[in-house]
Protein backbone atom coordinates (compact mmCIF):
# COMPACT_ATOMS: atom_id res chain seq x y z
CA UNK A 1 0.00 0.00 0.00
CA UNK A 2 2.86 2.34 0.81
CA UNK A 3 3.94 2.15 -2.83
CA UNK A 4 0.56 3.34 -4.07
CA UNK A 5 0.32 6.06 -1.45
CA UNK A 6 3.76 7.47 -2.08
CA UNK A 7 3.17 7.37 -5.85
CA UNK A 8 -0.09 9.28 -5.43
CA UNK A 9 1.61 11.76 -3.12
CA UNK A 10 4.39 12.28 -5.65
CA UNK A 11 1.78 12.73 -8.39
CA UNK A 12 -0.05 15.42 -6.41
CA UNK A 13 3.19 17.13 -5.38
CA UNK A 14 4.38 17.19 -9.01
CA UNK A 15 1.12 18.75 -10.16
CA UNK A 16 1.29 21.32 -7.38
CA UNK A 17 4.82 22.18 -8.40
CA UNK A 18 3.83 22.48 -12.06
CA UNK A 19 0.86 24.60 -11.11
CA UNK A 20 3.11 26.88 -9.11
CA UNK A 21 5.60 27.20 -11.99
CA UNK A 22 2.85 27.90 -14.53
CA UNK A 23 1.41 30.59 -12.24
CA UNK A 24 4.75 32.18 -11.49
CA UNK A 25 6.20 34.94 -13.68
CA UNK A 26 8.88 32.46 -14.83
CA UNK A 27 6.44 30.48 -16.98
CA UNK A 28 7.59 32.25 -20.15
CA UNK A 29 11.24 31.27 -19.67
CA UNK A 30 12.80 28.46 -21.64
CA UNK A 31 13.76 26.59 -18.47
CA UNK A 32 10.14 26.45 -17.31
CA UNK A 33 8.99 25.32 -20.76
CA UNK A 34 11.32 22.33 -20.45
CA UNK A 35 11.02 21.71 -16.72
CA UNK A 36 7.22 21.47 -16.54
CA UNK A 37 6.78 18.64 -19.08
CA UNK A 38 9.78 16.82 -17.59
CA UNK A 39 8.19 16.93 -14.13
CA UNK A 40 4.93 15.69 -15.65
CA UNK A 41 6.73 12.81 -17.35
CA UNK A 42 8.47 11.86 -14.13
CA UNK A 43 5.15 11.96 -12.28
CA UNK A 44 3.62 9.57 -14.82
CA UNK A 45 6.58 7.18 -14.48
CA UNK A 46 6.37 7.33 -10.67
CA UNK A 47 2.63 6.67 -10.74
CA UNK A 48 3.18 3.70 -13.08
CA UNK A 49 5.95 2.28 -10.89
CA UNK A 50 3.97 2.79 -7.66
CA UNK A 51 0.73 1.34 -8.96
CA UNK A 52 2.36 -1.70 -10.56
CA UNK A 53 4.42 -2.50 -7.45
CA UNK A 54 1.78 -1.56 -4.92
CA UNK A 55 -1.09 -3.43 -6.54
CA UNK A 56 1.10 -6.42 -7.36
CA UNK A 57 0.43 -6.36 -11.13
CA UNK A 58 2.07 -9.35 -12.78
CA UNK A 59 5.18 -8.34 -14.78
CA UNK A 60 3.73 -10.39 -17.65
CA UNK A 61 0.97 -7.81 -17.98
CA UNK A 62 2.77 -4.57 -17.18
CA UNK A 63 6.35 -4.44 -15.89
CA UNK A 64 7.35 -1.45 -13.73
CA UNK A 65 9.56 1.11 -15.51
CA UNK A 66 12.55 0.23 -13.30
CA UNK A 67 12.47 -3.36 -14.66
CA UNK A 68 12.29 -2.00 -18.20
CA UNK A 69 15.26 0.27 -17.50
CA UNK A 70 17.24 -2.66 -16.05
CA UNK A 71 16.44 -4.79 -19.09
CA UNK A 72 17.37 -1.88 -21.35
CA UNK A 73 20.78 -1.61 -19.67
CA UNK A 74 21.33 -5.38 -19.77
CA UNK A 75 20.38 -5.86 -23.44
CA UNK A 76 22.03 -2.89 -25.11
CA UNK A 77 23.76 -5.25 -27.56
CA UNK A 78 20.52 -6.79 -28.78
CA UNK A 79 18.79 -3.42 -28.85
CA UNK A 80 21.59 -1.90 -30.92
CA UNK A 81 21.48 -4.80 -33.38
CA UNK A 82 17.72 -4.36 -33.79
CA UNK A 83 18.11 -0.61 -34.05
CA UNK A 84 20.67 -0.83 -36.84
CA UNK A 85 18.61 -3.44 -38.71
CA UNK A 86 15.29 -1.58 -38.53
CA UNK A 87 16.20 2.08 -38.30
CA UNK A 88 19.58 2.50 -39.98
CA UNK A 89 19.11 -0.06 -42.77
CA UNK A 90 15.34 -0.22 -43.29
CA UNK A 91 13.81 3.09 -42.28
CA UNK A 92 16.66 5.49 -43.03
CA UNK A 93 17.52 4.22 -46.51
CA UNK A 94 13.85 4.10 -47.42
CA UNK A 95 13.29 7.58 -46.03
CA UNK A 96 16.14 9.09 -48.01
CA UNK A 97 15.15 7.31 -51.23
CA UNK A 98 11.47 8.15 -50.83
CA UNK A 99 12.13 11.79 -50.03
CA UNK A 100 14.48 12.20 -53.01
CA UNK A 101 12.01 10.50 -55.33
CA UNK A 102 9.16 12.67 -54.06
CA UNK A 103 11.16 15.90 -54.41
CA UNK A 104 12.29 15.05 -57.93
CA UNK A 105 8.79 13.98 -58.97
CA UNK A 106 7.32 17.18 -57.55
CA UNK A 107 9.81 19.31 -59.49
CA UNK A 108 9.17 17.28 -62.65
CA UNK A 109 5.38 17.50 -62.58
CA UNK A 110 5.49 21.12 -61.48
CA UNK A 111 6.37 22.17 -65.03
CA UNK A 112 2.94 21.05 -66.18
CA UNK A 113 -0.07 22.71 -64.57
CA UNK A 114 -2.24 19.94 -65.99
CA UNK A 115 -0.29 17.19 -64.25
CA UNK A 116 -0.20 19.14 -61.01
CA UNK A 117 -3.96 19.55 -61.00
CA UNK A 118 -4.35 15.85 -61.73
CA UNK A 119 -1.82 14.54 -59.26
CA UNK A 120 -2.57 16.74 -56.26
CA UNK A 121 -6.05 15.31 -55.45
CA UNK A 122 -4.81 11.77 -56.04
CA UNK A 123 -1.72 12.32 -53.91
CA UNK A 124 -3.84 13.82 -51.16
CA UNK A 125 -6.15 10.85 -51.27
CA UNK A 126 -3.36 8.27 -51.30
CA UNK A 127 -1.62 10.04 -48.42
CA UNK A 128 -4.74 9.40 -46.31
CA UNK A 129 -4.90 5.69 -47.17
CA UNK A 130 -3.71 2.89 -44.90
CA UNK A 131 -0.64 2.22 -47.07
CA UNK A 132 0.93 0.01 -44.37
CA UNK A 133 -1.28 -2.72 -45.84
CA UNK A 134 1.06 -3.14 -48.80
CA UNK A 135 3.77 -4.38 -46.43
CA UNK A 136 3.06 -8.12 -47.02
CA UNK A 137 3.09 -7.59 -50.80
CA UNK A 138 6.44 -5.80 -50.78
CA UNK A 139 7.92 -8.34 -48.36
CA UNK A 140 7.01 -11.10 -50.79
CA UNK A 141 8.53 -9.11 -53.68
CA UNK A 142 11.80 -8.03 -52.11
CA UNK A 143 12.50 -10.80 -49.62
CA UNK A 144 12.80 -10.85 -45.85
CA UNK A 145 15.83 -8.63 -45.36
CA UNK A 146 15.93 -4.86 -44.98
CA UNK A 147 15.40 -4.14 -48.69
CA UNK A 148 11.70 -4.95 -48.43
CA UNK A 149 11.39 -2.72 -45.35
CA UNK A 150 13.06 0.12 -47.21
CA UNK A 151 10.61 -0.41 -50.09
CA UNK A 152 7.62 -0.14 -47.73
CA UNK A 153 9.10 3.04 -46.26
CA UNK A 154 9.66 4.52 -49.75
CA UNK A 155 6.00 4.04 -50.65
CA UNK A 156 4.77 5.35 -47.31
CA UNK A 157 6.82 8.57 -47.22
CA UNK A 158 6.49 9.34 -50.94
CA UNK A 159 2.98 10.79 -51.08
CA UNK A 160 3.00 13.12 -48.05
CA UNK A 161 6.29 14.66 -49.19
CA UNK A 162 5.12 14.88 -52.82
CA UNK A 163 1.86 16.61 -51.96
CA UNK A 164 3.54 19.07 -49.62
CA UNK A 165 6.32 19.89 -52.09
CA UNK A 166 3.88 20.48 -54.94
CA UNK A 167 1.89 22.83 -52.72
CA UNK A 168 5.08 24.55 -51.61
CA UNK A 169 6.28 25.10 -55.18
CA UNK A 170 3.06 27.02 -55.83
CA UNK A 171 3.86 29.26 -52.86
CA UNK A 172 6.05 31.89 -54.52
CA UNK A 173 3.81 34.85 -55.38
CA UNK A 174 3.34 36.35 -58.84
CA UNK A 175 5.13 39.50 -57.67
CA UNK A 176 8.19 37.55 -56.61
CA UNK A 177 8.24 35.62 -59.88
CA UNK A 178 7.92 38.87 -61.81
CA UNK A 179 10.88 40.26 -59.92
CA UNK A 180 12.93 37.22 -60.96
CA UNK A 181 11.85 37.84 -64.56
CA UNK A 182 13.03 41.42 -64.41
CA UNK A 183 16.41 40.07 -63.33
CA UNK A 184 16.31 37.91 -66.50
CA UNK A 185 16.46 34.76 -64.37
CA UNK A 186 15.83 31.50 -66.22
CA UNK A 187 13.69 28.58 -65.10
CA UNK A 188 16.44 26.90 -63.11
CA UNK A 189 17.60 30.09 -61.45
CA UNK A 190 14.05 30.93 -60.42
CA UNK A 191 13.61 27.39 -59.14
CA UNK A 192 16.81 27.29 -57.13
CA UNK A 193 16.86 30.83 -55.80
CA UNK A 194 13.18 31.58 -55.29
CA UNK A 195 10.72 28.73 -55.56
CA UNK A 196 12.58 25.93 -53.78
CA UNK A 197 13.48 28.11 -50.79
CA UNK A 198 9.90 29.38 -50.69
CA UNK A 199 8.68 25.78 -50.73
CA UNK A 200 10.91 24.71 -47.85
CA UNK A 201 8.38 25.24 -44.99
CA UNK A 202 6.01 22.91 -46.85
CA UNK A 203 8.73 20.40 -47.69
CA UNK A 204 9.74 20.22 -44.05
CA UNK A 205 6.14 19.76 -43.05
CA UNK A 206 6.06 16.68 -45.28
CA UNK A 207 9.46 15.50 -44.04
CA UNK A 208 8.26 15.75 -40.44
CA UNK A 209 5.10 13.76 -41.12
CA UNK A 210 7.22 11.20 -42.96
CA UNK A 211 9.63 10.54 -40.06
CA UNK A 212 6.97 8.75 -38.02
CA UNK A 213 5.58 7.00 -41.10
CA UNK A 214 9.05 5.68 -41.93
CA UNK A 215 9.42 4.06 -38.51
CA UNK A 216 5.88 2.65 -38.66
CA UNK A 217 6.53 1.18 -42.11
CA UNK A 218 9.84 -0.40 -41.14
CA UNK A 219 8.40 -1.97 -37.98
CA UNK A 220 5.14 -3.24 -39.51
CA UNK A 221 6.96 -4.78 -42.46
CA UNK A 222 8.94 -6.90 -39.99
CA UNK A 223 5.73 -8.45 -38.69
CA UNK A 224 5.42 -10.12 -42.10
CA UNK A 225 8.79 -11.77 -42.12
CA UNK A 226 12.29 -10.67 -41.24
CA UNK A 227 15.68 -12.13 -40.40
CA UNK A 228 15.95 -12.97 -36.69
CA UNK A 229 16.70 -9.42 -35.70
CA UNK A 230 14.96 -6.06 -35.93
CA UNK A 231 12.62 -4.14 -33.66
CA UNK A 232 9.38 -5.40 -35.18
CA UNK A 233 10.65 -8.99 -35.06
CA UNK A 234 11.69 -8.62 -31.40
CA UNK A 235 8.37 -7.03 -30.45
CA UNK A 236 6.22 -9.68 -32.10
CA UNK A 237 8.28 -12.59 -30.74
CA UNK A 238 8.65 -10.90 -27.34
CA UNK A 239 4.89 -10.59 -26.99
CA UNK A 240 4.56 -14.24 -27.91
CA UNK A 241 7.18 -15.46 -25.41
CA UNK A 242 5.94 -13.07 -22.69
CA UNK A 243 9.26 -11.26 -22.22
CA UNK A 244 7.26 -8.08 -21.92
CA UNK A 245 10.01 -5.99 -20.37
CA UNK A 246 12.18 -6.50 -23.46
CA UNK A 247 9.21 -5.43 -25.61
CA UNK A 248 8.87 -2.26 -23.54
CA UNK A 249 12.60 -1.63 -23.91
CA UNK A 250 12.15 -1.89 -27.71
CA UNK A 251 9.17 0.46 -27.52
CA UNK A 252 11.34 2.89 -25.55
CA UNK A 253 13.98 2.70 -28.29
CA UNK A 254 11.32 3.30 -30.94
CA UNK A 255 9.86 6.24 -29.03
CA UNK A 256 13.27 7.73 -28.44
CA UNK A 257 14.26 7.28 -32.09
CA UNK A 258 11.02 8.82 -33.30
CA UNK A 259 11.40 11.85 -31.06
CA UNK A 260 15.10 12.38 -31.80
CA UNK A 261 14.66 12.08 -35.57
CA UNK A 262 11.68 14.42 -35.46
CA UNK A 263 13.76 16.83 -33.39
CA UNK A 264 16.63 16.65 -35.91
CA UNK A 265 14.31 17.41 -38.82
CA UNK A 266 12.78 20.29 -36.84
CA UNK A 267 16.28 21.60 -36.12
CA UNK A 268 17.20 21.42 -39.81
CA UNK A 269 13.95 23.22 -40.58
CA UNK A 270 14.91 26.01 -38.20
CA UNK A 271 18.26 26.36 -39.94
CA UNK A 272 16.85 26.31 -43.47
CA UNK A 273 13.67 28.34 -43.02
CA UNK A 274 14.99 30.88 -40.53
CA UNK A 275 13.34 33.62 -42.60
CA UNK A 276 9.81 32.22 -42.24
CA UNK A 277 7.38 34.07 -39.88
CA UNK A 278 6.71 30.86 -37.93
CA UNK A 279 10.39 30.74 -36.87
CA UNK A 280 10.44 34.32 -35.64
CA UNK A 281 11.12 34.85 -31.97
CA UNK A 282 8.21 36.68 -30.44
Amino acid sequence: MSWVLSALLFWIAAWALNWAIARSPFHVTRAARILVPVIFGMAVLALWEGLVRGLGVSPVILPPPSDVAARFAAETGTLWEDFSQTVLKGALSGYVLGAMAALLTAIAIDRSAFLTRGLLPIGNFVAALPIVGIAPILVSWFGFDWQSKAAVVVVMVFFPILVNTVQGLAEASAMQKDLMRTYAAGYWQTLLKLRLPAAMPFVFNGLKIATTLALIGAIVAEYFGSPTRGMGFRISTGVGSLSIDLVWAEIAVAALTGSVVYGLVALAEKRVTFWHPSQRKT
Binding site: N18, A22, P37, V239, A255
Partner: peptide
Protein backbone atom coordinates in the same frame (compact mmCIF):
# COMPACT_ATOMS: atom_id res chain seq x y z
CA UNK B 1 -5.41 25.73 -17.82
CA UNK B 2 -1.87 26.86 -18.40
CA UNK B 3 -0.54 24.14 -16.10
CA UNK B 4 -2.10 21.43 -18.22
CA UNK B 5 -0.98 23.12 -21.41
CA UNK B 6 2.62 23.33 -20.28
CA UNK B 7 2.68 19.77 -18.89
CA UNK B 8 0.71 17.87 -21.51
CA UNK B 9 1.18 19.63 -24.85
CA UNK B 10 4.84 18.62 -25.37
CA UNK B 11 3.96 15.02 -24.54
CA UNK B 12 1.03 15.08 -26.95
CA UNK B 13 3.49 16.06 -29.68
CA UNK B 14 5.99 13.41 -28.60
CA UNK B 15 3.23 10.79 -28.50
CA UNK B 16 2.80 11.22 -32.25
CA UNK B 17 6.46 10.59 -32.96
CA UNK B 18 6.19 7.21 -31.22
CA UNK B 19 5.49 4.53 -33.80
CA UNK B 20 2.16 3.26 -32.48
CA UNK B 21 2.57 -0.05 -34.27
CA UNK B 22 5.27 -0.91 -31.78
CA UNK B 23 2.57 -0.71 -29.15
CA UNK B 24 -0.15 -2.47 -31.14
CA UNK B 25 0.68 -6.13 -30.30
CA UNK B 26 1.31 -4.99 -26.72
Amino acid sequence: SRTIEMSVMPWAIISQTVPIVALAPM
